[in-house]
Structure formats: structure tokens, C-alpha cells
Design a binder for these strands. Structure first.
Lengths: 232, 232
DNA sequence: CGCTATGTTGATCCATATCAATAAGTGTGG
DNA sequence: CCACACTTATTGATATGGATCAACATAGCG
């Protein structure tokens, strides 16, 4: 693994406080690879051989069953994915594919587990990370079970807007097809849902979303910190 | 906290390997309480003051939004709940209420966090526990997004059957109303879903489920270890 | 340029929710 | 121990959100 990638990874909350010695033993066995778009990196059910760290690009986590497929999450740099499978030495529950050209570091799961056993600050960082992941998935479940698709879309738009610092116009950062899948609906239904938000001052032009009436949209979406806040 | 409760808690995977000294500092500030049924123990949004351990009885974890409510999980003895909120010192994402008369140990979250900082085997046990919780919620999301309600019910029945060691007859261990909510449907729809499984050899009499044709049901349900297996 | 994948729109179908009425339990107090 | 109230479960009728199917438009892209 090229040393130039060290700082990026070291800067992650997960690796920030661990001993140099242990960080080195993680990077020693690791390697970094560039992948073209649309490559299936991992397949659900496979044993978790590597902890993945996305350095640049983007990755879709998805799952399939009985011929159906759904997008579970999108990973953006710089962050790890499938930490839980690595820790438990259990099969992946989700598949992963690159969405664009992506640079990914691969750390053998075995190494992660042994360093985890020997480095307490690493173990604690993993706890914090996992607790956050857990809470994200719980929020997502609440979103799915408590809201209609129109409400999910409205809240998604507000969350995105927040990520962009509150701008009233912004571009969707991935294709509608996958947004639909992530939100648990069909592309056709998403198309109509965008129309359905027009009365609340949302207009869509290609990938560009504009929020013409913030108050109206919020009144409809009723965002909640216990579902929509990114951290906490 | 009465000493008679020590062994039960100490036996949990979470506390098994920690130092006696640390276990004592957890139990020192803890107390045990008996609650009648239908008591709201915690309310989502509240700060996480205590790690809860269910010693006997049962507890429903649920969430609400905009006047709607959904059951997220049922806790059975002996296990902890809302560990993630305690660890992150963040507000509860779910509310909890007793379903029956329940005995619950309450450990101040502050104590959990300090012992977690000082006891490495405790920290590691928490990692394992959280990773498992995370994976459960991911499985649940897959169940929700990839299956129809009839399929979810069919697989739920098979999972329950497994928990009872494969008996072809067993009782549902909670009321249909809450099962419906947990599976993400209305009580009316659950009622009809049970009827809808008759062609696959499922008959229902009150709370008693019988599986008359295992193979047929499995062929329809298509259970997957990546969604339905309890552990891993 | 076409070619192929993505997005939109319309028509229709289906799963599930909602509303309403009834039945069946369950618990409480007289 | 029964009558009453109250909650839960079932069943039917209907409404609706969302899926599916089909046609067409559009946009990237080699």
C-alpha cells in the first residue's frame, strides 16, 4: 500500500487514536486498488476477507433476494464499509459495486481482528463507529415503516439540502433509478413523487432540485432529528 | 441491586469476560425494578440515562412519527437494550414499553461509558454485541424492502418454528396486533395474510400455528440465511 | 450519429390501507 | 360467577398508494 494513502486513512476517526505500531501492521498487509465503474467488489454471502476503505469515487451497497434487488446505502469517501461483517467474521450481508471509478484500500479482515484484540483505542473507535452505523440503520427503518414514499422523498430532499449547507438549489448526487431503489420505490413512482411535491414548492429539472418554498416543504415533510439527523 | 441478580447479568456475553472490579462498579450504581405491563420505560428522544437489562418479562421497542407508530423489536430475557444510545451518549431512537410484568436492571449510562473506557474486554464484548445488533437491523431492512407482506409472514413463521426446534405446531409469542406492526402491516392485512398462507399448508387457530406442509411453505417463503438466520 | 440506458408519462392492476360491522376474548367489579 | 365494558381479531366493502406494463422521450456515449 502506497504511503501517500496513509494520511487519508489515518485521519479517519476509526484509526486516529490507535498506536503507530498497530496502524502499520494494518497497512502492511493492505493494498490499494483502482476500480472502474460498475464493478462488483463483494457479493453478499461471501466470507468477509477484507475491510474496505473507500478513498475516492463512490460505492453502492445493495442486496438481492429472489430475483429482486434493492439499494441499501451509498458509500462516499473517506469511509470504511462492511465493518460489522469483518468484526464478526461473518458473511457479508450486502453486496457492493463501484458507481464511478473508485480507489479502495483493502485490509485483510484477519489483521483487523487481531489488531482489534490488541489495541484498545482501536477497539473503542470501532465501538463508536458501529454504534453510529447501527443508529443509521434504525433511522432508515423508521423512515421506511412510518412514512409514505412521498414523505420519504420530501425528507430525503431536505436532508440533502442540509448536507449542502442549506442551499435552495442543488444537484442530486446519484441517478434517480438508484435513488428510487434506496427510497424503496420504483423509478416510475419516484418520477411521479417529484411531481407530487410541486404543490410544496419543489421543482425538478434533470438532476437539479430547487426548493422554492422551504416552509411549505418542511410543513409537509415534518423532518425529525430522530430519523433525519445524520449524526447523533 | 440485589446480589441474587448478579449471576444472570454476569452470564451475559457482554459482561462475561470483564474484570470483577469493573463489574462491581457497574452493579454498584445499578438498581433493579419490577414494572407492571404496559409501562413506558423510555421515550424516544430522551437522553440515554440508563443501560437497560431485561431480566424477566418482555419489552416492546417501538417508534412513532407524525401520529403513526410501529413496533421495531421485541426484547426477551436476558438481554440488554438501547446499548448504542448509551455508548454514543445520544438520545434514544426508540421508545420501550413493558408487555408483561417485567424485571429490569438499570445501569447508569455514565458508568457504562467509564467502565467501557477502562475495561478492554468489556469494550470488545460491546463491539461484538453491537456488530450483531447492526446485522440484525440490516437483515430486517432487507426483509422489509425485498419481500411482500405475505412473504415476510411466511418467513417469520419459519423463523419462529426454528426457534422452537422445528416443531410443526407452536404458539405465537405475542399478540397479532403487534406482530402486524412489527412486520410492517395492518392487523386486517395480517389476518388475511394468514389466510393467504393456507394454500401452503399453514393453519391458524387463535395463537396456535401449525405447519402442515413444511416443504410447500419453504418453497414459497424461500428463506435465506442472509435475512433469516438469527445469529451470524 | 445512432445505440443503449435512463427518465417520463399514461393506462391498468394489485397489494395493502382504510372504514365499518361483527365476533371473540379478557378483565373488572358487582 | 356472571354481566358489562373494553380490547383484539376477523370479515367485508371500498379506496388508494404504488407496481407493472407499455410507449415514448431524452441523454450519454462509443
Amino acid at each position: 500500500m502506497p504511503e501517500s494513502d496513509y494520511p487519508d486513512i489515518r485521519g479517519l476517526h476509526l484509526f486516529k487514536d490507535m498506536a503507530d505500531e498497530h496502524f502499520l501492521s494494518l497497512t502492511r498487509g493492505a493494498y490499494v486498488q483502482n476500480f472502474p465503474p460498475q464493478i462488483e467488489l463483494i457479493t453478499e454471502g461471501d466470507p468477509s476477507d477484507f475491510l474496505h476503505i473507500l478513498l475516492s469515487g463512490s460505492v453502492d451497497l445493495f442486496s438481492t433476494w429472489n430475483g429482486r434487488e434493492t439499494s441499501m446505502a451509498t458509500v462516499r469517501p473517506i469511509s470504511t464499509f462492511i465493518l460489522a461483517a469483518t468484526i464478526r467474521d461473518a458473511p457479508y450481508l450486502m453486496s457492493a459495486r463501484t458507481l464511478e471509478k473508485s480507489r479502495i484500500a483493502l485490509i485483510p479482515s484477519q489483521d483487523v481482528r487481531s489488531v482489534f484484540d490488541g489495541d484498545n483505542s482501536f477497539a473503542r473507535a470501532i465501538v463508536t463507529e458501529l454504534a453510529q452505523c447501527y443508529r443509521s440503520v434504525v433511522k432508515n427503518t423508521k423512515d421506511l415503516k412510518l412514512r409514505t414514499s412521498l414523505e420519504r422523498l420530501a425528507n430525503y430532499i431536505l436532508r440533502q439540502q442540509n448536507r449542502r449547507g442549506g442551499a435552495s438549489e442543488f444537484d442530486l448526487d446519484f441517478e434517480k433509478r438508484r435513488l428510487a431503489s434506496f427510497l424503496g420505490m420504483t423509478p416510475e413512482n419516484l418520477s411521479r413523487a417529484f411531481k407530487g411535491l410541486q404543490p410544496y414548492g419543489v421543482t425538478v429539472n434533470g438532476n437539479r432540485i430547487s426548493i422554492d418554498n422551504q416552509k411549505d416543504l418542511e410543513r409537509f415533510a415534518k423532518p425529525s432529528p430522530l430519523i433525519d439527523d445524520v449524526s447523533t
